[in-house]
């Protein structure tokens, strides 16, 4: 056998064929469902295209139209508001629950298991459940309120300005992903660090604020990214409750995208897709910088 001057051994080289063969299905999936769609979205977002005729290059017109469309501007405003709520209240509640569970009070495991349930059922079903909870006739909420104020009637999902908040309610407290990711990091904090702080006389509050919280900033950053990107992609919770109404009160970019596909305005639809994609990247970069996620922690 020729001892290898190169880095790879004979056995390895003989396996190349198999390696590429094994990667073939995944690579095909990547090409067909990731790479080529993304390139199509980028390219055709600068065209007028109905899917039958050839796309016609129109420069930035789709984007200009987008930023002149009232529906799109409302969607952006909604997205901004939802992102702020997600990054503060939603993630805040998730982190708070992580610290509660970290203290391991009686029943913490049970709570952790149960908290996950809304996330394992379909967002479509969850949206329907909330539609019923907020229903004026038989919903829990209004019936509860009517115990105290018998003439109370509000159609939460169909009246401005409540609709926005009703949609927000379907996700605001369901922050189990944040909780699990942060809890995972908290549990990984070395015993010595906690011990050392205690010996130095740190109160539980100081320990939490100055040691534990900074130590799990990566997990919190991940939580912020996940929760804001799910706001960008939020679809079922809106389609099945308000369908974007009343007026355009609860519109979101994926709804515009789907509507444009049904209207055969493919170029315009893809300009929306581009906006979603770019917004996602901006969020990722911004959170990475804010939370210094690339610096190592220990």
């Amino acid at each position: 056998m020729k001892a290898g001057k190169s880095n790879s051994t004979v056995l390895e080289r003989r396996n190349y064929k198999w390696c590429y063969l094994f990667l073939l299905p995944s690579l095909l999936i990547f090409l067909l469902f990731y790479l080529s769609p993304i390139l199509t979205v980028i390219a055709t977002s600068f065209t007028k295209w109905d899917g039958f005729n050839k796309p016609v290059f129109i420069g930035l017109k789709n984007y200009i139209d987008l930023f002149h469309s009232k529906t799109f501007l409302i969607s952006l405003k909604n997205l901004l508001a939802w992102s702020v709520i997600a990054a503060t209240l939603h993630v805040g509640f998730g982190v708070l629950m992580a610290f509660v569970l970290y203290a391991k009070p009686k029943g913490w495991k049970f709570t952790r298991v149960i908290f996950m349930v809304p996330n394992v059922i379909s967002a479509a079903a969850w949206a329907m459940i909330y539609k019923f909870i907020f229903n004026d006739d038989m919903g829990i909420l209004n019936n509860l309120i009517r115990r105290f104020s018998p003439d109370f009637h509000v159609q939460w999902f169909f009246q401005s300005p409540y609709a926005f908040w009703a949609v927000t309610c379907t996700w605001i407290f369901y922050a189990v992903i944040v909780t699990l990711v942060v809890l995972n990091d908290l549990m990984a904090v070395p015993e010595e660090v906690v011990e050392a702080a205690r010996v130095d006389g740190a109160s539980p509050w100081q320990l939490t604020r100055h040691i534990m919280l900074p130590l799990c900033r990566n997990a919190i950053g991940t939580g912020v990214i996940c929760s804001i990107t799910s706001r960008i992609a939020m679809y079922e919770q809106i389609r099945l409750t308000t369908a974007g109404g009343p007026g355009d009160d609860t519109m979101n970019i994926p709804l515009i995208l789907v509507n444009s596909i049904s209207d055969m305005k493919y170029g315009y639809a893809n300009a929306n897709g581009m906006v979603m994609f770019v917004l996602g990247l901006i969020i990722l970069a911004a959170v990475n910088i804010t939370f210094r996620m690339n610096d190592s922690i220990y």
């Binding site: 990731y34 769609p37 992609a233 897709g273």
Partner: peptide, 18 residues
Amino acid sequence: TLLVPSHSKAQPIFSLIM
């Protein structure tokens, strides 16, 4: 691919399936 929102690819995938 984790960074690409799956909804943003809706049109190309729709056309591909067509």
